[in-house]
Design a protein around this nucleic acid. Sequence first.
RNA 1: GUCCUUUGUUUUCUA
Length: 315
Amino acid sequence: VVTYNTLINGSFRWQSSSNAIQLLEIMEKSSVRANAVTHNIMIKGLCGEGKIEEANKALRKMVQSGFSPDSITYNTLINGYCKVGDMCGAYKLLEEMLQKGIKMDIVTLNTVLHYLCKDRMLGKAIALFRFAPRKGYMLDEVSYGTMIVGYFNNEKVDEALKLWDEMKKKGIFPSLVTYNSIIAGLCKAGKINEAFSKLNEILNCGLLPDETTYNTLIHGYCMEGKLEEAFQFHNKMLENSFKPDAITCNILIHGLCKEKMVDKALKLFNKWVSKGKTIDVITYNTLIAGLCREGKIDMALELFGEMEEKKLGPD
RNA sequence: GUCCUUUGUUUUCUA
């Protein structure tokens, strides 16, 4: 069943729910029985595609098969409801969970913190963040990372940095994700040099930056109009054998368009395509926006036609 | 004591 679980989960991640469901059906026809993890994977996968109804069906099936939803099940569903904006649904589930005697854990708490921050209720998030330890919750790296991002998104740069220090003082060592978060925040605040110095800190800690790290910094430089530096980072990425991805491409194209260099953006785009690298809807949207701004509507429409050919549905 | 599942980080449009 572990084999099937791994495959089903991977299928959701890299293919689609229909492939995953097929695998589940194959498993059901065999002598292998689904376990609680299988059900949790199904629920998560369906939530991930925004199919809340289907996820609920999967939940019912789980119960029918004799499994009790656990905290992972509930956390998954609560996150799913929040993701589609159904806070009432999420709240109902939370109550149901508590009624069944399943305690909120740090994951539940972090999920709530995240959506409070996202829905511009930073104040409530802060209150919860400060109150939780008194209730026995051990704030972890995700809690801190979530709040740091929340502060940055509300332009509270100093507070974000204060939390960063507080976290370290507590002996929680930032992982790459948290470093990426603070780099993004510093970039957004226009503190690109401080963001850059965090990259050195990453290396000194023995961590390795990833594509997100580079993309974030490249984006930071682009936003400042420093395209030279942005492309230097792009080259550095290649040197260090990281693979610039569609996001990298989108960032660079956007940066070029912003500086009224749509022609160069188009060149980059063509180069990217000819190398067989992936592009996506956002690539097209970015280029089309750049072209429209310059009044080159016919070229924009040409790209629009290409989108349909490539089955990248315009949105 | 080992495998699988839940939370945080990067890109596009409205001045």
